[in-house]
Each structure stands twice: as C-alpha cells, then as structure tokens.
C-alpha cells in the first residue's frame, strides 16, 4: 500500500493505493492522525485502492468519528463500484460522503470548511 499526500486548494488530499486491510490500515491511520488533530478538512482519494477489508472499513469509520468530534469535514473520492457496494451492504456507507472525483470531493468539503 502506498500513501501520497498533497494539498489542493488548501485541502489535504491523501491518496491510498493498493489494499486497505489489517496490515496497512494502521499506517493509513497514522498518516491521517495529525490532520484529524487539527480538525481540518480532508479528502481521501481511493481511486487507486483495490480492496478495503473489514479492518479497513473500521479505520475509515474511526476517521469519520474522530473528524466529526472535531467538527472537521472530509469526503472519500474514487471508490470503485464494487467497494461502494460492499460498504452499502455492510452499513459503512451511511457514515461516509463519497464522490466520483477528487474535484467533486474538494468542492463538497470546501463548502463547509473556512
């Protein structure tokens, strides 16, 4: 799994490629943590992410809850149809705002962030 961090329009965009599962999810969480701490806005680009396991879904949910506690705004972009479907069936989709492209996700996040 690879993690790339960029900043676009003042919003952190974290792109994850490969597999988000029990072995890689802790690393993803570490990368996101400082951003959560500052309560800032965040886009998670999963367009290169092939697979999200049970552990991966839980890390995403933890991120969602921690950001919500800080009134932060975030969104996920680029989910494959299959991963989106799995999230729907397991109930995790209800906790995430998901968009097709990074641009759409950025637009949604910025409307809420100063």
């Amino acid at each position: 799994m690879d993690i790339t961090k960029t900043v676009r329009d003042g919003v952190s965009v974290i792109a994850i490629s490969g597999s988000l599962d029990s072995t890689t999810a802790p690393r993803a969480q570490d990368e996101v943590l400082p951003l959560i701490a500052s309560g800032c806005c965040l886009v998670l680009d999963l367009s290169q992410c092939e697979y999200v396991s049970s552990a991966g879904l839980r890390v995403l949910l933890m991120i969602a809850k921690q950001l919500a506690a800080k009134n932060g705004r975030w969104a996920i972009s680029g989910l494959s149809a299959e991963i989106k479907d799995v999230m729907e069936m397991t109930g995790f989709a209800a906790f995430f705002a998901t968009f097709g492209t990074v641009a759409e996700a950025l637009a949604a996040v910025k409307t809420a962030c100063p």
Binding site: S53, S54, L57, V86, M89, T90, G91, F92
Partner: peptide, 20 residues
Amino acid sequence: FAATGKFGMQADELKNLIKE
C-alpha cells in the same frame, strides 16, 4: 448467505440487515 461472504464480511452484512 452473504453477498460479502467471499470477503468474510457476513457478520457485518447480517447486522446491517437487522439494523435496517
């Protein structure tokens, strides 16, 4: 009995069904 059974997510899928 789970569409996500191949990923081992049957417990979550059933719990989500019950929640719904």
